[in-house]
Design a protein around this nucleic acid. Structure first.
Lengths: 147, 147
DNA sequence: AGAAGATCGTTAGCTTGCTAATGAGACCGT
DNA sequence: ACGGTCTCATTAGCAAGCTAACGATCTTCT
């Protein structure tokens, strides 16, 4: 009988691998997804804005490094903000915009596939449990940040 | 309302961070845990054996690289097998053996803490759901490995 | 106006994971 | 006995994440 930590890490690893494989077929790596999602919603954000608006906590240096790889892959371009020389704005290329539908579709299908053997009730329970754990651990972090 | 993939990645990230912090207090990093667990059970395994017996799938190069860091940190020593020159055996130091109880205890406490706001029933549901997902995705992998 | 401070992106350097390529050693068949 | 093959650990090189340090630019205060 495995402990919960192990089950969760195992699930995460399998899902990340499957996500990466699915996205690869559209010329995108798993680590680029958060940036794509943010820029699909609002093109021309700065790295700091992407980090702040991403659906998951991510640091600015990670955005910058990933953006560099995406630039090399022809997925986005960097342009200096004309009004504030400190800022750099990230703009998606046509290729990155075209990948939106297929990638979102692929991720939705993966999620459905992974949870296909669960009942609706089990899916609900799963979301509830994960949400509770996140709230609990987030609260700890807030505490430690307050010192 | 977040999708399941996001909830799971978020949970994983928080738990990994908390695990790493807990283990740091005993001079061990999160990535070293799988090797420690394997060698606590059976000291003197080879990198390949550690990879095969670890509680989670992990590749041999990852074992080798992590073992190098652990050697530098004084957690283990490498010794060539006298009967087979290809093999390298990994032996824990006293320090690594002494860390066993506190680390296992810390991980157990973390797991209890993270799931403290769940009912027993919710915990059961969670394990069931994760197990089902793992089985599902493992089956896919087996398929693709068969070609 | 000019210095001090705040706010950016970036770089440096680390850990953890992967796949593919290397090289040393054991084994097997002739 | 020795050439080919198989089996190991290791190395090389990449992606993705982090914290800390750096350097450029804005802002603010006197």
């Amino acid at each position: 009988m495995d402990d919960f930590l192990t089950l969760l890490v195992r699930t995460h690893k399998l899902l990340q691998a499957a996500s990466d494989e699915a996205m690869n077929r559209h010329g995108v790596r798993i680590g680029q997804n958060l940036i794509l999602e943010a820029l699909w919603e609002a093109d021309g954000l700065t790295p700091g804005e992407v980090a702040a608006r991403a659906r998951l906590p991510i640091t600015t240096p990670t955005i910058v490094n990933t953006a560099t790889r995406m630039e090399a892959a022809g997925l986005l371009t960097r342009r200096r903000d004309p009004n504030d020389g400190r800022l750099v704005r990230l703009y998606l290329t046509d290729r990155a915009r075209a990948a939106r539908q297929p990638i979102q579709e692929a991720r939705r299908r993966l999620e459905d596939h992974a949870t296909a053997t669960l009942t609706d009730e089990e899916r609900d329970h799963l979301r509830t449990a994960l949400t509770k754990i996140i709230q609990r651990l987030d609260a700890d972090q807030a505490d430690s940040n307050r010192g």
